[in-house]
């Protein structure tokens, strides 16, 4: 089955970031295809490479990056949500005059249309969040 996963909550604050990850991993292991993982609301905070969790805790951001690279998954941060919360890639830094970037490897920033397209193109859209 072709799946799009929407993650609405930030890492560490909320279990959704973990359950979405474990769901994605399990789905891939079962042979399903992930069309896209779309991060919205505080979920965009899953895509900052500046995260530094304590050493004895899981690294949620790196975990996503590794999953994306291993399985070539399209992971998209909503641009409007990312701008509000300070998640920046090269394009956004240039457009908005920011002096740095913080997007983690394997993520890209794009529009909400990518979420709607995920709903259209996939067999199931699964939302993780409150």
């Amino acid at each position: 089955m072709k799946l799009t996963i929407q993650v609405n909550e930030g890492p560490y604050q909320h279990q959704s970031a973990d359950t979405a990850y474990y769901f994605a991993k399990a789905a891939l292991e079962k042979g399903h295809e992930i069309f896209r993982v779309f991060f919205y609301h505080d979920g965009v905070n899953n895509g900052t490479r500046l995260t530094t969790p304590p050493q004895d805790d899981r690294n949620i951001v790196n975990r996503w990056s590794e999953l994306a690279q291993e399985h070539n998954i399209d992971m998209v941060l909503c641009v409007a949500a990312a701008q509000r919360r300070g998640i920046v890639d090269d394009g956004e830094a240039e457009r908005n005059g920011k002096d740095t970037t913080n997007i983690a490897p394997g993520f890209r920033i794009s529009g909400l249309g990518q979420l709607v397209e995920g709903g259209i193109q996939s067999d199931r859209l699964i939302v993780f969040g409150d």
Partner: peptide, 13 residues
């Protein structure tokens, strides 16, 4: 508010 933003963008589809 962010739900409404999806609705407005999604209308184009």
């Amino acid at each position: 508010w962010e739900s409404l933003e999806v609705v407005l963008i999604g209308a184009a589809f």
